[in-house]
């Protein structure tokens, strides 16, 4: 039911972990199935230089977390903001319909981390 790409990211997820002194943290939860995703970013000169995640969720949630960190790493904040839920699913060669909300969670976590970074910067 999952694409090879999803299985590959699930089995070998990139950027798992936490960042000790992050510039932004996004913590989101999925009211539907009760899953949780935390995303940490490090930003330098407006570029996401490091990004890490921790996820409590299904195979798709882990794979989309991993893919989202890959898509965002090295991007400018403006570019990263444009990463949509659809982009994540697309980069994984699609997700089963019942699992689309998992990719939403990953994109939302990234956005939340960026928002947190911008809020901190504005202070």
């Amino acid at each position: 039911m999952y694409s090879d790409k999803v299985m590959e990211h699930f089995a070998n997820p990139r950027n798992v972990g936490e960042i000790a002194d992050p510039d932004g943290i996004g913590k989101v939860g999925n009211p539907q199935c009760g899953d949780v995703m935390w995303m940490y970013i490090k930003v330098k000169d407006d570029i996401i230089t490091d990004i890490k995640f921790k996820t409590f969720g299904c195979g798709a949630a882990i794979a989309t977390s991993s893919m989202t960190t890959e898509l965002a790493k090295g991007k400018t904040i403006e570019e990263a903001k444009k990463i949509s839920r659809g982009d994540v699913a697309h980069a994984l060669d699609g997700l089963p319909p019942v699992k689309m909300h998992c990719s939403n969670l990953a994109a939302d976590a990234l956005r939340a981390a960026i928002k947190d970074y911008e809020a901190k910067k504005a202070k």
Binding site: V16, G29, P31, G34, V36, K54, T55, F56, I62
Partner: peptide, 17 residues
């Protein structure tokens, strides 16, 4: 290792929600 939760940091209630 991938999970945000652990014995030191359990999930709070309906945190997912």
């Amino acid at each position: 290792e991938m999970s945000p939760f652990s014995k030191d940091r359990p999930k709070c209630g309906r945190e997912g929600g």
